[in-house]
């Protein structure tokens, strides 16, 4: 029993991290129909900012997460301004190639500054609670709580605030939005800031749970979170969360039941099968034709 709950907790922790990264993909895709392939690397930058803030500047937890989120949000805005905006009207394939290029650039820039793996010190003291065999660590609780909190906040921003409304309007018709007096570039920048900031938050959480970081850490996790977003229905915020938790669960179950080399193989096969039956993802709807 303790064993099963322990594995469920592992599932929840991994799923939370995937979900928060997946939200960054889904935000940008939902609003601009652009797959921001640099997002995994923005996540990595978030982890490195956490390392700098906590390891070099010895900041406490709250400033660390603020530095990581603000830094990646700025990076996201910069990437949009200098890499994606000039291509906004270009063919989609150019934008995708640019996104991949930006990712490689960020990786190698970080690699040039710090080629070695780095250790992120303990930002918060780790406390373990024991419930008849089930060990719950304060880090796990923090990660799950922080992820759920972030998701609720994002859902609120997008559904209830005027900026969220403008984002949704932008996703429907980018050409008409300026006629409402809405500055499109500001809304796009805000979308990138939020998306990238989520990447930064995920990077910090990741660095707290898995405190050895390196410049390539974002690649595989980025791909997985992207797939989580697609499985949930890309562009759909609740879908991204669902996709993240599903991927976390599938990976955990595969590792429990099968040799480790099968994990990604099984996880991705299942996801592919799922997409065959639900091509728009679980919560995605086919793109409606605009009237």
């Amino acid at each position: 029993m303790a064993y099963i709950s322990q594995q469920l907790l592992n599932m929840l922790q991994l799923g939370s991290i995937y979900a928060v990264i997946a939200l960054g993909y889904t935000m940008v895709y939902g609003v601009l129909s652009l797959i921001n392939f640099a997002h995994g690397d923005i996540f990595m930058v978030g982890a490195f900012l956490c390392f700098i803030a906590a390891g070099k500047l010895h900041m406490p937890f709250v400033p660390v997460i603020l530095v990581a989120v603000a830094g990646t949000a700025l990076l996201g805005v910069g990437v949009e301004r200098f890499a994606y905006r000039p291509l906004r009207d270009a063919p989609k394939v150019s934008a995708i190639i640019t996104a991949l290029g930006v990712g490689v650039f960020i990786e190698n820039f970080t690699l040039a500054l710090s080629p070695y793996p780095r250790h992120v010190p303990e930002i918060l003291p780790v406390v373990n609670w024991n419930f008849s065999g089930l060990t719950v660590s304060s880090i796990q609780v923090l990660i799950v709580a922080l992820s759920i909190g972030l998701m609720v906040v994002l859902d609120f921003i997008v559904r209830k605030t005027s900026y969220g409304m403008a984002m949704r309007a932008l996703s429907w018709d980018i050409k008409t939005l300026p006629l409402m007096g809405v500055p499109v570039n500001t809304i796009v920048a805000l979308t990138f800031a939020i998306g990238a900031g989520f990447g930064g938050a995920a990077g910090t959480m990741y660095a707290m749970a898995f405190p050895v970081i390196d410049p390539y850490m974002g690649i595989m996790i980025g791909w997985k979170a992207f797939i989580a977003a697609v499985v949930g229905g890309i562009g759909n915020i609740r879908g991204a969360m669902l996709g993240g938790y599903i991927l976390g669960a599938v990976e955990t179950l595969a590792t429990v039941a099968l040799p480790s080399t099968y994990r990604d193989f099984v996880a991705f096969t299942l996801l592919l099968i799922l997409l065959v039956f639900r091509p728009n993802g679980i919560l995605g709807v086919p793109k409606t034709i605009k009237v």
Binding site: R168, A169, P178, L179, M180, G181, P183, K290
Partner: peptide, 28 residues
């Protein structure tokens, strides 16, 4: 003058095809 600044100046454009945001409610 940027397109989105015209509204503050007092010009409102109801575009061809009406430019309704179909994914938003009437109130929104």
């Amino acid at each position: 003058v940027a397109a989105h600044k015209l509204v503050s100046l007092g010009i409102t454009h109801v575009p061809e095809g009406r430019g309704i945001f179909g994914n938003l409610t009437v109130r929104e």
